[in-house]
Amino acid sequence: MKIQKEIIEFEKEKSFKLFSPSLKNCFFWHYHPEIELVYVKTSKGIRHVGKNISGFTDSDLLLIGSNVPHLNFDYGIQTECKQLVLQMKEDFLQDLILSTPEFNDIKKLLERSYLGLSFSGETKKLAVEKLNFIKDKNSFDSLIGLIEILQILANSVEVKELNDEDTRIKWFLNDKIRMGTIYDYINENYDKKPNVNEIAKIVNLSTPAFCRYFKKQTNMTFTDFVNNYRINQAQIFLLKDYSVTDVCFQVGFESLSYFNKLFKQHLGQTPSEFKKRYFKREELI
């Protein structure tokens, strides 16, 4: 579960690859020199890119820079999950994009990608349509399609930077703690009472040292992370039409009022409002 360098192989005479991976219960905390565009569609998921750990609902479109550590986006998801992953050769970017003045906007986009970029709204819709369109096209048409996708992303204001500092692999090389162990512990215990002393012992750290390490890695305290994980899981259960009260206790909260308060802090709406809005949208489709 230590961080791994992924070795990406490309077909001959291909500058990029587009495929649909499925890892599910595999914890693949990895990096690679190739820049990657990822589209993931599922009811609810968690993204971990660099130091950022956050949730998304329905779908996400991410541009992940060279050598930025990230977790596979279907890790731990028990519901249906579809992915499209596009990986670009290093020399393709160097030889074509970075050396061509007409691609200056795309060049700036790729230079920012080390922060991890999440796209939303019309940008996501258009980019995903083109991703699906180029899947079965010949090499030339798919290349033109990729350039168009990058131009759409480069001109978009519907984008969120996931990190506010450089998190490329140099930052992580001295990390000897297995983040996978921590993920698994939280996943198995979020509905009970995750104990910071217990997980600190599992990863061979004192409790104060673990708390410092965890805050440095995630920009969150252990308690905040567990609550964030619970809220993400709660959304999945709400989308399955469980009652708010059942979901509250099912994800490990002991107080309904605290659950409602925390849910609203995270999503700007109560669990009831979240559920009502979702099922109202379903009726209109």
Rank of each mutant, 00 (worst) to 15 (best):
K14C: 11
I64K: 04
G121R: 05
K24A: 02
G65K: 06
L117I: 00
F16G: 05
N132T: 12
L93I: 13
K82C: 06
F16H: 09
E129Y: 04
F27P: 00
V68T: 10
K130E: 14
E11K: 12
I134D: 10
E9P: 01
D74P: 01
L115Q: 02
V128N: 11
N138V: 06
Q94S: 14
E34C: 04
S118K: 13
S118Y: 03
K44M: 10
F119W: 02
F103H: 08
V85T: 04
E122V: 13
I7K: 12
E11S: 11
F19Y: 15
H32L: 12
S22I: 00
E9N: 11
D60I: 14
N67K: 08
K51E: 13
F27L: 02
S20W: 04
K130N: 13
L18W: 04
K14I: 03
D74L: 03
I7G: 05
A127W: 02
G116I: 00
S118A: 14
L86Y: 01
T57C: 10
I134T: 03
L84R: 09
E13M: 13
I144P: 11
K130L: 14
L110V: 03
P21Q: 09
A127K: 06
D136E: 14
T100D: 11
F10K: 03
L98N: 07
F140P: 11
I64E: 10
D74E: 05
I53T: 08
F56P: 07
L96F: 15
G55A: 11
L62A: 06
G65I: 02
F19C: 05
